[in-house]
Design a protein around this nucleic acid. Structure first.
Length: 608
DNA sequence: CATCTCACG
DNA sequence: ACGTACGTGAGATGC
């Protein structure tokens, strides 16, 4: 398994035109990880491991000394040998979650192409059906259970780094990963065949890997002092609110414990409206506390809500984000998962930069800590109402399509249609209700959900929905057809052919409604996800053609963030907007125009 | 490690 | 009669 002579493997890869690759490192964080070794596989059962950064010695003993393990090729020598193969346009490099390895190797100056990714081959064919991690795929497609990493590095606090694993133990593990990856490719690639799934993989999945890798490595500048000052402000607010809450409760308790809070509100204070969660605990969610504050004048509930908001902002954002500012780059490097959602959306982790606060003033201040370098600007470009536009297209609703063509206020138009009031001088509350209905439609509307959201009686919500369907009967047809297709085929599709499987929709039981609403939502949410993926793939070459140096930094589902030199801001907005607004064509030209709003500023807050 | 809660689109 | 708005990730609590 261990690689004594690398060149014969590389020659075999060149002859064959493909090989699988896997890197071993000291961390799951690609921006912090050190390369420890690499494995290659050209023929099943013949994988090899190249140890590069293993050490010997006792790490947990201050007196112990770490020494470089013997019989390892110098890093530079290995990279020089690998470069002609990993960068050869005629040799396909196969990996499992290859974005990870691409980033590690890019930090060593290696730019790997062309590529195939077994995780994404699986995702393009089986989203919604099963997991796409290597262990799951190996078990499912090869009936094989790979060596668990735990057996090498341990787990929890006592876990060691991969560089501390003995080479003789590391080699079989690492080589197996490359071997399994190659064998998975042999199963999954042919299965793709000529199909819409193949087009999805080739046009929406694979090309996004290097785009995301570059975005993640670039990161976004974080203002540590600003976050730190906000943390201090939040601490003081929390202390004041905590004292008030203890006073109002007549006792000291942990404000962060829903259990203790529920007991105080409903057992001790005997407030009405208590309900239990499915595990029998008192429910103390924001909706419950808001009702207690509004309808029963509970100051404790009101103050608790304030405390929760500040506590959330501090722990999840101002405290945690500081730890995610890279010590060398001064930037926050998130990781985008390509295969985490059933619908085709990306997911952001470590940290999640797709849920940075925006809806409250205190929250917005956190966005002021995401800034541009001096002389640069943050640009934000976001699709306006993309999901409703896609719904209008898919369900073919002439009135909605026309409204979007004419640039009308879609929520006001909906209100006008279903409540029979003129758009001019409309009561904002009426528009707000129509907006909730429009969102509800995207989510697979129910009287229960709408009544909850608008805090109106269930029968009133039902009347709204009935009025909506009377005006837009095509929406109900779309919903019925979509559920029927999901039941008949076991999947639904986006406009671009992405399949979202719905294996549980035919099962009877309490979760049926849930499955049906998910099936209704998936083509809408998924098509929007496809559109922005297409834009993201086209933007880097479009910027290059226009000789623009700006960098794409983040994607937040319908929004893209850039950092650009001030002098290039206008032109960059022009170029990016054109790409985004035409990202549906030519594969699937929407009957509604795509509209992109743009903003700029020295921070994310200012650009929004 | 499950549960609850809450941040986003 | 049931039990729900769709899709996520993360932090704190408490078993």
């Amino acid at each position: 398994m261990r690689c004594r002579a690398l060149q014969p493997y590389l020659d075999a890869a060149a002859r064959r035109g493909l090989l699988s690759v896997d890197t071993e490192t000291t961390s799951l964080d690609e921006m912090q990880a050190d390369l420890v070794g690499g494995s290659l596989c050209v023929e099943p059962g013949q994988a090899c491991y190249i140890p590069l950064g293993h050490v010997t010695g006792i790490a947990d003993d201050l007196l112990g000394e770490e020494k470089r393990a013997e019989n390892q090729m110098p890093m530079e020598e290995a990279l020089a040998l690998l470069r002609p193969v990993l960068e050869d346009p005629a040799i396909l490099k196969i990996g499992q979650n290859l974005k990870y390895d691409l980033k590690i190797l890019a930090r060593h100056g290696l730019h790997v192409a062309p590529i195939d990714d077994t995780m994404l081959l699986s995702y393009a064919q089986a989203a919604g059906l099963h997991a796409h991690g290597m262990d799951a795929l190996a078990d499912r497609h090869l009936g094989h259970q790979p060596i668990p990493i735990k057996t090498l590095i341990g787990s929890g606090k006592s876990a060691i780094g991969f560089h501390q694993v003995e080479i003789d133990k590391a080699a079989p593990y690492a080589a197996e990963d490359a071997d399994v990856t190659l064998r998975l490719h042999r199963v999954l690639k042919p299965r793709l065949a000529p199909s819409r799934a193949a087009t999805v993989y080739e046009t929406l999945e694979r090309p996004l890997i290097p785009v995301l890798a570059r975005m993640e490595m670039h990161g976004i500048k974080g203002d540590r002092d600003r976050l730190s000052r906000l943390s201090n402000t939040f601490s003081q607010k929390m202390a004041g609110l905590e004292a008030e809450c203890h006073d109002l409760a007549g006792q000291s308790f942990n404000l962060g414990s829903p259990k203790q809070l529920g007991e105080i509100l409903f057992d001790k204070m005997q407030l009405p409206g208590g309900s239990k969660t499915k595990t029998g605990a008192w429910a103390t969610g924001a909706d419950v506390l808001e009702t207690l504050a509004a309808e029963h004048g509970s100051d404790l509930a009101a103050r608790l809500l304030d405390w929760r908001q500040v506590s959330k902002l501090k722990s999840t954002y101002t405290d945690a984000l500081q730890t995610h500012i890279h010590p060398e780059t001064g930037r926050v490097h998130t990781s985008f998962s390509l295969a985490a959602t059933s619908t085709g959306r990306l997911a952001s982790t470590d940290p999640n930069l797709q849920n940075i606060p925006v809806r409250t003033e205190a929250g917005r201040e956190i966005r002021e800590a995401f800034i541009a370098e001096p002389g640069n600007l943050i640009l934000s470009l976001d699709y306006s109402q993309i999901e409703l536009r896609i719904l209008a297209h898919i369900a073919d609703i002439e009135a909605l399509k026309q409204a979007f063509r004419e640039g009308q206020d879609i929520h006001a138009l909906t209100a006008s249609e279903i409540f029979g009031v003129p758009v001019e001088g409309m009561d904002p509350m009426i528009r707000r209700q129509a907006k909730a209905i429009n969102f509800g439609v995207i989510y697979g509307i129910s009287a229960f959900g709408l009544s909850n959201n608008l805090r109106i009686p269930r029968d009133e919500a039902k009347a709204f929905i009935d009025a909506y369907f009377a005006k837009f009967p095509g929406i109900r047809t779309y919903m019925d057809d979509t559920v029927a297709a999901a039941k008949a085929q076991g999947f639904v599709e986006t406009l671009f052919g992405r399949r979202i499987h719905t294996p549980d929709i035919t099962q009877k039981g309490p979760r049926q409604g849930f499955q049906q609403r998910a099936a209704i939502n998936a083509p809408i949410q998924g098509s929007a996800a496809d559109v922005i993926r297409r834009a993201m793939i086209r933007i880097p070459p479009a910027l290059e053609r226009a000789r623009l140096s700006g960098k794409m930094l983040l994607q937040v589902h319908d929004e893209l963030l850039f950092e650009v030199p001030e002098a290039e801001a206008d032109k960059t907005i022009e170029v990016v907007r054109e790409v985004m607004e035409s990202a549906d064509a030519p594969a699937c030209k929407l009957a509604t125009p795509l509209v992109v709003d743009a903003g700029r500023g020295e921070s994310w807050a200012a650009a929004h």
